[in-house]
Every structure is written in structure tokens, then in C-alpha cells.
Design a protein around this nucleic acid. Sequence first.
DNA 1: ATAGCGATGTTCT
DNA 2: GAACATCGCTATA
Length: 184
Amino acid sequence: MSYNLFELLALPVQRAAETMLGWRLQSNISGATTGVILNEVEAYGGPDDPASHAYGGRTARNASMFGVAGTLYVYRSYGVHWCANVVTGPVGEAQAVLLRGGRPIDGISTMETRRRRVDHLTDGPGKLCQALGVTGEHDGTSLVDGPIRLLPPVGPVDAEASPRVGISKATDRLWRFTPAQPEP
DNA sequence: ATAGCGATGTTCT
DNA sequence: GAACATCGCTATA
């Protein structure tokens, strides 16, 4: 079974997250194209998920989580890094998939410049945003037709579930997904 | 390889 | 004040 973008965005957030493995995240910013194949993602629920930024309802920070599926939610982490999510599901449910890592495939030299190093370019949510040039100004943009886009996979990827990283609440939910098989 | 720790600023109690 | 969906450096193996 394979999905197009709109089918993916309509799935329940856990299914959307595991399905998103193998999809390409591509950024076109100031003339430079950079892209990865996603290999680490996490599902976050809406106001009823204690680990979610949407827990307790809408605020200034999480506003874009409450928007239409396919919206990019970018927030500042630990005061230093940017992290990016894909909003999924019905408007107002505030479900989102945190993009935690990918395998570099396009614009590697640009990513090396942005990261100021040649290793560990995109193996972490903050690193991924830095390599792709994603910042707070991209919060609320569309992954369908904006500067950062989500593109269908080359082939399907089997998902393995594990606990979400870096959280202290709802740690029993296995909502982190990585490829079950080693990548090519 | 893994463990410990400081940096940094926004968000929430 | 405290917590935080993190990162990179250092030390030890």
C-alpha cells in the first residue's frame, strides 16, 4: 500500500508518522536546494497528549499546529535550535509529526556549509533544520507548495516503533519511528 | 561507543 | 524560578 501526499496527511498521526519514513523532505531557500530521506520521526497528539506542545490548548507558540494538514510547525528548542513538524489530521486537532532525522541526498555541500561541519549533518531535529535552512520564519508555511516540501518516497519502508526521545510525560507511548531495516 | 555537562532563551507555573 | 520534543565538547573505553 502506498499513499499520495494528501492521503498521508489525512491518516491518524501515528500512521502518518510511520508512513512518512522514506519520504523526501526538500528545501528550496535562497536558490539552494537541499534534501533528505526521512529516517526518524515522532507522532504527537493534540491537546490530550501530555507530551505535545498542543497539550492544554492553543497558545501563540503552537498556533500552526491547529492549522490545516500539511502546514509546517517550527518552534525554538532549548533557546538555540529550530525543530520542525508536519501538521496532520483534521483542522483543530493539532496533531503533528516531529521530523527528527534524515539521510542527506541533495545539496550536501550546502548542508556542510550551514552546519559548519561535514559529519552528522541531519541526524537530529535541530541539525536537520539547520542543514535545510529551516527557521522560525517558515513556521506556518505549506509543505504542499511552500519553500520546504514533502515528496513521495522512492520505495516503502518498514517502521520500527520505540519511545519518544527527550520527553518526560507519556513515555509509555511507542510513537517514535525508525526504519526496521538498515538503509541502503 | 557511551556518559556527563554547560550553553542558551522561550514558555509556563 | 523551573522546565524544556537539543547540541557539541570532553573524558573515558
